[in-house]
């Protein structure tokens, strides 16, 4: 594997955006960062700045109010980047499905690479999702070289 790709896989910096979830999934994401699961051993850092992030982690459904923010954050992330929808809400709208103000899953607004189902998604699942996202990233990285 080329150094470039390897570096990308070893250092996914996360931007976590809460699209109006019930906070169940957010707590699980935080749990993934705690000593018990220690996501940092994979180089994962919750960076909080779209301009430096590689991985957009979204919880909660897209709605009429926040879709533009979601879109803007996504646009502000420089390539290569991957998007992870965490929780049923982010994947499909979940229990907010068919509410008048929701649009549904976040894939209505931005392209999603990995869906992590569950209400709420468990930390192990989330870390698993990151691993999947990284595979996607390495494919992207290799394609970029061709």
């Amino acid at each position: 594997m080329k150094t470039k790709t390897k570096a990308r896989l070893k250092s996914p910096w996360v931007l976590h955006y809460d699209c109006g979830s019930c906070n169940g999934c957010d707590i699980e994401i935080l749990a993934a960062l705690t000593p018990k699961f220690d996501a940092e051993r994979f180089g994962i850092v919750n960076i909080g700045d779209p301009k430096q992030a590689d991985l957009l982690v979204v919880t909660g459904p897209a709605n009429r109010r926040n879709h533009r923010v979601l879109k803007r954050l996504y646009d502000q992330m420089p390539d290569p980047k991957v998007v992870m929808a965490v929780g049923t809400c982010a994947s499909t709208g979940g229990i907010f499905h068919n509410c008048p103000n929701t649009l549904g899953g976040i894939d209505k607004v931005i392209p999603v690479d990995v869906y992590v189902p569950g209400c709420a998604a468990r930390p192990e699942q989330i870390i698993d999702g990151v691993v999947l996202a990284l595979q996607k990233l390495s494919e992207m990285s290799e394609k970029e070289d061709d």
Partner: peptide, 28 residues
């Protein structure tokens, strides 16, 4: 720091991964 928080922590050369990754991102 990780050990002080009883975590495993990232590999020793993690900062270099970060820097190389950043260097290769699309320039903005």
């Amino acid at each position: 720091t990780a050990r002080m928080q009883s975590r495993v922590g990232p590999p020793l050369i993690q900062p270099f991964y970060d820097a190389i990754k950043l260097w290769n991102k699309r320039p903005v």
